[in-house]
Design a protein around this nucleic acid. Sequence first.
DNA 1: AATGAATGAGCTTTCATTCAT
DNA 2: GATGAATGAAAGCTCATTCAT
Lengths: 206, 206, 206, 206
Amino acid sequence: MPTKVQLKKQQKTDSLLTTAYKLFTERGIANTSIADISEKAGVAKGTFYLYFKDKYDLRDRLIAKKAHQLVMAAYHKLKDPMNAPLEDSVIALTDDILDTLNKDRPLMNFLSKNLSSGVFNRIVNAPSINCDEEDFRQIFMEMLAHSQIHYRDPDIMLFLIIEMTSATGHSAIMYRDPVDLAGLKPHLHTAIRNIMNEYREKGTES
Amino acid sequence: MPTKVQLKKQQKTDSLLTTAYKLFTERGIANTSIADISEKAGVAKGTFYLYFKDKYDLRDRLIAKKAHQLVMAAYHKLKDPMNAPLEDSVIALTDDILDTLNKDRPLMNFLSKNLSSGVFNRIVNAPSINCDEEDFRQIFMEMLAHSQIHYRDPDIMLFLIIEMTSATGHSAIMYRDPVDLAGLKPHLHTAIRNIMNEYREKGTES
Amino acid sequence: MPTKVQLKKQQKTDSLLTTAYKLFTERGIANTSIADISEKAGVAKGTFYLYFKDKYDLRDRLIAKKAHQLVMAAYHKLKDPMNAPLEDSVIALTDDILDTLNKDRPLMNFLSKNLSSGVFNRIVNAPSINCDEEDFRQIFMEMLAHSQIHYRDPDIMLFLIIEMTSATGHSAIMYRDPVDLAGLKPHLHTAIRNIMNEYREKGTES
Amino acid sequence: MPTKVQLKKQQKTDSLLTTAYKLFTERGIANTSIADISEKAGVAKGTFYLYFKDKYDLRDRLIAKKAHQLVMAAYHKLKDPMNAPLEDSVIALTDDILDTLNKDRPLMNFLSKNLSSGVFNRIVNAPSINCDEEDFRQIFMEMLAHSQIHYRDPDIMLFLIIEMTSATGHSAIMYRDPVDLAGLKPHLHTAIRNIMNEYREKGTES
DNA sequence: AATGAATGAGCTTTCATTCAT
DNA sequence: GATGAATGAAAGCTCATTCAT
């Protein structure tokens, strides 16, 4: 297949995804029709079906894309992620992600509405869709391996942290209830450190 | 108004709520039409609108009712709630609720889908709809007051516990990921105790 | 039948008529339901059917009532209607009615929407509904009889005047097109006088 | 766009308009549903909405079309419209239109019900919808310009004539009240001539 | 006479999906 | 590959009318 054609296909896909995201966040998925998306994306209604099975197929691909961008952007801002203390890296990651979502309410809303059980955990565990993309799970495991401290049940530890952070973060950002994000952070930091401390293998670290 | 008429009205309301809950859990809200609900509830379509504004009005009332039942049932199973150590009561409550939801997947699914940000927190904070019903928030505050230990920021402490519990519980129950409910519980208990310990006012307790 | 009961019935009828007129003029007949009328009139829905066959029965009675009031009010303002020149009386009548309608747009709108062919002619020819009410047709015929001038085809003469006046008046009042009411009046007066002059029996009057 | 597709679209539009006109005149607009129109027009219900916003959009386009046809047909029957005396042309026009409506009661009824304030005036003043159609207003102004006689306030003169003619014509045709169309005509001719005489600029004409 | 809960036919409108071009 | 006209099932909602109380 000539590159030119593939490029055009990529453009259509991108246009549909971008337009759909805009409409989904503006008026919700239920109130967005395929006709809307197609029209605003500048393609014919029939063309939509050449690229996506239906509205929910598009949505799922959109979530994966947005979530992956969010996490990887936070990761790439870390300084020396492999050598810094793991606790600090985890807190830096969660802070950055929460800050981003706090500034981008539509994104927070879109992700939380569609990742009902914990915004982060799904993202983290989801293997990258495009095979050439980085996989956050692998990266985190590398960070763990490089850490001088050993942790018991690292999966469950991460799970507790992720779910607590995402659920409380969501409430703080969207409803400022019972506190806003700034008010929540110190509590969250303490709770994360306590959890990680609990899972720290005694006698580890020199 | 004669009691007889009022009784009939209550029956219709109940029939609609029960039928709707059945259909909602079987096939989802989006795939349940008002015609379906009415027909299976044995009333005319127009009758639906005498009792509910629309499908979402019914849903909201259903959530409030189910959630309230869930929490209050757990509370009433507590032995001596006002005098037992608060940590034990909290853990008993969460365990009971999670066990109930673990046995009743449709209920877990229904509540989690519709209480996106933390199953529990909304329930707990929602004032009872029927004014004559008990209000869980008030009850919890009484438990706090009776406790011999003082806690800083009890709102935020409760918030952290509720959100962490509901989010991890949801994942464990629905997806057994990363562990099933039995596997999660010990971790959860430890995490809850750690959190409560963090907020315990130093020098309290005799 | 005791007077007291009859009084109550009259009150219900009046309440329904008044409420319906308010709603009809505010939102149109098509957008007013019997439920609306009954509720706002403070009676039960079933009660409506004790007094009116349906919405259109009510409307027709309303039109007759409002139209009759309009014409008779104008007539009663005439000074010495039986002795003044007929032309002057006719012009005074039309002017008064048009002025009233100009000040009461909802009334103009209501009557014109429901008396498509000539607001006036129907009113004038409609025999009074309540037998004890005055009948404008009879009154006009008396005015004609008292006039010193004889007119050919008085029915048709009146018809031409009424239809022309109502149609042009409607346009002037509702749309100010092609002129507003003040601008229309002199033209109308001239046209009326010309018509009446045309029908004046030659050799009449001393 | 291929001609073939456009042709089909035109056929659908025409079919919907024709069918709707038939149903509107037979049973009234309120008693005609979009389902009726679509079904009898041989298209799917959804197709209706590809061509019209709703029932009233269709009605408005129908009125404009029918009214324009009526007036232009009458105009094209005039012999030498630019040179004949204007009075004769005006009377010929009104007579022809009234005759047409007298023979086609459903059309009379449809137009009068939907052009409440004067059947003619709206038609005459409405600029043609399709830009390529002739505009009656312009034509009349040309006739005026060609006339050897000058008229004061030609707009108002025309307005008086149109409104009087349409209102009395409507009553005569639909109700034969107070006379039928044949009986009305001589009176109408006289009235029209009197009006035009009134507006004739003195000292005009050679 | 008055009520108002219940009905269910009937309406408008949307929209995913197909398929001839 | 791309189009967009056509479809028709399906949904939400209204409301005149009835009738047991």
